[in-house]
Write a protein that binds this DNA or RNA. Structure first.
Lengths: 166, 166
DNA sequence: AGGTGAAATGTTATAATATTACACTAGTTT
DNA sequence: AAACTAGTGTAATATTATAACATTTCACCT
């Protein structure tokens, strides 16, 4: 519920997360179709696993989930999929956590900007043109050509801070 | 030369880097003295090695430099010093590079904000109150209590872009 | 349909970064 | 000197990521 209003904020504890996953997969499929990319079974599965929550997830966690009892997957299996998904903006890497999270803003080009709760682990992706402009201005002043950005704010989210049980 | 004017920008190729190192060590000594901290020989040496350049340096690079021919230092040796130096704001960690760089703004409290050149590897630490305010405003809107920040802009610096030989 | 080349995946090994745990030393306080 | 604490040494191991090469799958062409 209220996905429009909350799309930029921390997801409510009771939100319909299955809808998040479904939307993410649908969008990814559309994006790949439109751009001649192959969202293979493996890539789709990795994307789905990344989207299992709004918490950034480690590559080796994914690897475990991909592995079946009899067949253990090797690191490149998951790293290659992660690389593909990152290259096409379907997920982001959280450098401060060595972890990966689904992109919430597939509809527009953007620099990744995250608020990440240390307690519950949830990450909220948040646009702010003021930040974008300020960075662009600084870069211009330096004569610096920007290629990648990492903005990760860690702390405690409202839910954890005010302890609404949940 | 011109250290005042350029203190917030990428250091000129011909700047007097020995002065940077000396200043950093002096400031660190003063800071530790005033705060009852022990800048031991090891910590001082690590700080000095981090300040060997304005390029973020990896822990294992430091480890090699600390090791002598006969005596190889072990990882905790350098990681503990790095932890100490980070805890007291004498250096910053660059999450996107798994590397460490001296703090250029010892004189005031600040969130670390870096522009990092992919080509020459140099990092410039840059304050921008507009960014600070924007992040604070976003955090407030989210009800998020900020504890740590990571802002790393990667790309190509002016010197590398315009290729002034160097 | 079969051949071909490129993309994707499987597999093994290893690199790079970081931490745990415990022993020992040095410095400080009493 | 005893006792305590902070700092360092050392060995082992955890965690994250990549390299190199073999094999499979897929799209495309004829």
């Amino acid at each position: 519920m209220a996905s429009k209003k909350e799309k930029d904020l921390f997801p409510a504890a009771n939100h319909d997360h299955k809808a998040c996953i479904k939307t993410a997969l649908n969008e990814a499929e559309r994006y790949c179709r439109e751009n001649g990319l192959r969202l293979t079974e493996l890539r789709r599965r990795v994307l789905e696993l990344v989207w299992a929550s709004h918490r950034p997830v480690g590559a080796y966690d994914l690897l475990e989930k991909i592995s079946s009892n009899n067949r253990k997957a090797a690191p490149p299996t998951v790293y290659r999929s992660l690389d593909f998904l990152m290259e096409h903006g379907l997920i982001h890497r959280i450098a401060s956590l060595n972890a990966y999270v689904g992109c919430s803003h597939l509809d527009h080009h953007h620099a990744p900007r995250f608020f990440i709760c240390d307690q519950c682990g949830e990450a909220a992706e948040l646009d702010d043109p003021v930040i974008d402009d300020a960075i662009a201005r600084d870069a211009k002043r330096l004569g610096f050509r920007v290629e990648r950005q990492t903005l990760e704010i860690s702390g405690v989210c409202a839910t954890c801070e005010h302890g609404s049980t949940g």
